[in-house]
Amino acid sequence: MPKKATPSTARPRATTPASDTPPAPSAELLRELTGKSHWLRRELFQMVMATKKGHIPSSFSCTELLVSLYYGGFLRHRKGEPHDPSRDRLIVSKGHAAMALYPILADIGFVPPGELANFTRKDALLRMYADPSIPGIDAISGSLGHGLGIASGMCLAAKQDGRDQRAFVVLGDSECYEGSVWESAYFAAHQGLDNLVAIVDRNGLAIMGRTEELCRIGSLEEKFRSFGWESLSIDGHSYGEILPALGRLGRTGGKPLAIIANTVKGKGISFMENRSEWHNRMPNEAEQRQAWLDLETNTIAN
């Protein structure tokens, strides 16, 4: 079946001395994370199919990004301790994909694993859009353009307190249409929030079509750089590129870090990939069989 991943349009910029580059990820870690990709997509697909609610394509475009944060050692946390105030913060500001955190939160002991099967069910813990009543969720989502500002406040507080805490925000590329994102972008740069990382899930699709056709976004890498951020573009499905990009954290000379992750909406299910109409659609039985087949056999290139 055709699997056309969005080609990576840029590589991490070689603007820093070799001695300052983060160490390359080990083959063992890459294998482990690839396994987590498969696991997370299958968990999410099951979770959504149980109640036919949720957003698969938005979640699948940032699967590797979230796995990298939690299992690549970047989002520092202690298993089973969601209320630890020193835990690093993560806001999935593109709220459609906040549900992608749920299997991870169950896996690290933040929410009971049994809750996954209750996703969106009456009075259950796990809702369509996440909010801080769910252990491990650091901000409410569902309305675009809030996460970067809230995370900036968290990062500023950590700096004022002299705490080594950082915050990661996963933004949608279409979310970057919101002006508040850019209000936050120059605030974070001015405040020197080098403990803040914005990861833009650049899947190129809004609900109604392709961003560059609907209302051109252009180069987000350049935009963030011009706002005073360290900015780079990567293939957002390649652990070989995601991990070194996240490794830039702490090596940005006082700047916040923007990672433009070129991704494929719906990555992993052939017929959903790059198709905006799947944003809100549920697969029928035949499509579900095909999707399962894809999720069983799919390999993410690293």
């Binding site: 650091d138 809230i150 900036s152 406040g153 990062c155 507080a157 209000e183």
Partner: peptide
């Protein structure tokens, strides 16, 4: 000076930042 923040003429970001700061006990 450390306790005064000027976010620019940016009311939206100001409120979001305030939420983040309050989350951290400010």
């Amino acid at each position: 000076p450390r306790q005064f923040i000027h976010p620019g003429i940016c009311e939206q970001n100001m409120i979001d930042v305030a939420a983040g700061l309050a989350s951290a006990g400010k």
